Computed example of a mutant assay.
Amino acid sequence: MLQSASIIDACRLSRAIIKVFRHNDLEDLEILLRSTAGDKIVITEGVFSMDGDFSALDKICCLAKEYNAVMIVDDAHGDFIFGSPGSYSGVPGYFDVKGMIDVNVSSLSKGLGCFGGYVASSKLVRELLINKSRQFIYTSALPEHLSAAALAAVPLAEKGNLQHRLFRNVEFFYKKLTDLGFSINNSASQIIPVMIGDEKLAIDFSSELLLDGVFVQPIRYPTVGKGKARLRLTVTSLHTKGDLLT
């Protein structure tokens, strides 16, 4: 499972007992919930940042509710991209489980194209974070112009025009890559891992692409497992067909 580094770091900093369930494995999650006494928190991403696939968020939320666990989702890669027209509230909106999320952690730098991030939660959790979170307290506030840019981007995202262009580009690029024989795992989003396998070969691929004016980062061990190196591509709504065919 390729969980985001921010989730891993947050879990470690919490000093809680950490139990990891297998990727989207609901049976494994239920076993852990059933066998854990006391307060419980379930944390997952909305869109997984290395493979581009969705979490089974609707079913995970149901299990969290059944076992009285706090539900936290990091939807940095799904927010303002997926959901329903008029809101595009990310993977929780896509699965219609917004009311089952206790804490929604997200980014302003992905779907909105700005900078920074936010936490959406109850007033009680918000006050707790403001007064107790060292990462918040000892971090400089966002400059006013960046906050204003993010606020201005929200109504543009809610219209859905850019999302439709993005989804067309993603579908087009999926087909071109698979027609060429590349494996993109189970990606269902704008994050597309082109699986290479060998670490050196992934670096060589990246270097050759850069010579042609295409900047693609090779992702390799220890960010991913040994032998699972890949080129991590991200399609945007502003890419043209010509860009994607380069």
Rank of each mutant, 00 (worst) to 15 (best):
R232V: 02
L63V: 10
H239D: 14
A202Y: 06
G99H: 07
D53F: 11
A5F: 05
G227L: 10
L231Q: 05
R220K: 15
L146Y: 13
M71G: 04
T44L: 00
Q3C: 05
K175F: 09
R134Y: 08
D243W: 05
D198L: 11
A10F: 02
V105G: 01
K110Y: 12
S187F: 04
G227D: 11
D102Y: 06
N104E: 13
P222Q: 13
S55K: 05
Y221D: 12
G160P: 02
C114E: 09
E27A: 14
E144L: 15
Q190T: 07
A188Q: 14
L32F: 02
T246F: 14
F115I: 09
I203E: 15
G52V: 12
I41S: 07
G86F: 09
M50K: 10
G213N: 07
A10I: 04
Y88A: 05
L129M: 14
A152G: 05
K159P: 00
V224A: 07
G197I: 10
I72C: 10
I219D: 02
I137V: 06
K132I: 00
R165V: 08
D39W: 01
L201Q: 12
G242T: 09
I31A: 09
I18K: 00
L112Y: 04
K59R: 15
Y138G: 00
K200R: 14
V194P: 02
Q190W: 12
R15Y: 10
F115R: 12
F205I: 08
V70Y: 10
P193V: 13
R126W: 00
I7H: 03
E30V: 07
F205T: 06
V235K: 01
L231W: 05
L112K: 02
D39E: 15
Y118A: 09
R126I: 02
P218C: 09
V73G: 01
L128Y: 14
L201C: 07
S237N: 12
D58H: 08
I60Q: 01
I81A: 05
L162K: 13
D9E: 15
T240R: 04
A141N: 00
S107F: 06
A37M: 09
N186F: 11
L57R: 02
V103L: 05
